[in-house]
Amino acid sequence: MLEGLRTALGERTARHRNRPFLEACMATCALVAIADGEVSLSERSRVDDVLEAIDRLKFFDVHEAVDLFNTHVDAIVAEPVKGRKAALEAVKEMRHDAGDAVMLVKIALAISRADGDFLESERAQCEAICRVLGLDLRDYE
């Protein structure tokens, strides 16, 4: 019983500690996926791949993460300037951790290439993500 309590407490602590990273990841995915005006099935599938591939995100229910993604997408569609600003604020929270910042750029690029094309609108969102993180996209292309 004590071991189960420790495990539950450890998972709860990990979720709390990693919540800003989850939010930044889903904001990044949304910014790039909706850049061309619609989220393709391949982009949604790539979001699922991101959730499966990153250990720090495994503490979260996939539905919770997808709901965050959808919330950002809906906000960007409803009010593009305000929605993008809010998503970039979530991303900006990771600017003080170089590893997290680089991971977000890699995620942005993965989403942008999910459907085989790296559109100018997607590139612009990747550049915006890099700007708020203090990075240069050219270093990751």
Rank of each mutant, 00 (worst) to 15 (best):
L2R: 12
G4I: 07
R6L: 09
L9Y: 15
G10V: 07
E11V: 07
E11T: 05
A14I: 08
R15N: 10
R15W: 13
R19W: 15
R19F: 15
P20F: 05
P20Q: 05
P20R: 03
F21A: 14
L22Q: 09
L22G: 05
L22P: 02
E23D: 10
E23S: 14
A24G: 04
A27D: 03
A27V: 02
A27Q: 10
A27S: 06
T28R: 01
C29H: 02
V32H: 02
A33I: 08
A33D: 08
A33L: 12
I34W: 05
A35Q: 01
A35D: 04
A35M: 06
G37E: 10
E38V: 15
V39I: 08
L41N: 07
S42K: 14
R44P: 08
S45V: 11
S45E: 06
R46T: 13
R46P: 00
R46M: 15
R46H: 11
V47D: 02
L51W: 13
L51F: 09
L51K: 08
L51P: 06
E52Y: 09
A53N: 12
A53F: 08
I54F: 06
I54D: 07
I54N: 08
D55G: 12
D55E: 13
R56S: 15
R56V: 05
L57F: 08
L57G: 07
L57W: 11
K58M: 15
F60Q: 06
D61I: 15
D61H: 10
V62Q: 13
A65D: 04
D67M: 07
L68T: 10
L68R: 06
F69Y: 14
F69T: 09
H72Y: 05
H72T: 05
D74G: 04
D74W: 07
I76L: 11
I76R: 05
V77E: 04
A78T: 09
A78C: 06
A78K: 14
E79F: 13
V81L: 08
R84D: 11
A86C: 03
A87F: 00
E89V: 06
E89T: 02
E93C: 01
R95A: 13
H96K: 06
A98C: 03
A98I: 15
G99M: 01
G99R: 14
G99E: 09
D100G: 12
A101C: 11
V105N: 00
V105Q: 03
I107A: 05
A108W: 05
A108M: 08
A108H: 01
L109M: 15
L109S: 05
A110W: 02
I111C: 03
I111F: 13
S112G: 14
R113G: 10
D115T: 14
G116K: 07
D117E: 12
F118K: 07
F118H: 09
L119Q: 12
L119P: 02
E120T: 12
E120Q: 13
E122Q: 13
E122K: 14
E122I: 04
R123K: 09
Q125L: 03
C126M: 08
C126A: 07
E127K: 02
A128T: 01
C130G: 06
R131Y: 00
R131S: 02
R131A: 08
G134K: 00
D136N: 12
D139M: 10
D139C: 01
D139G: 00
Y140H: 05
E141F: 02
E141M: 11
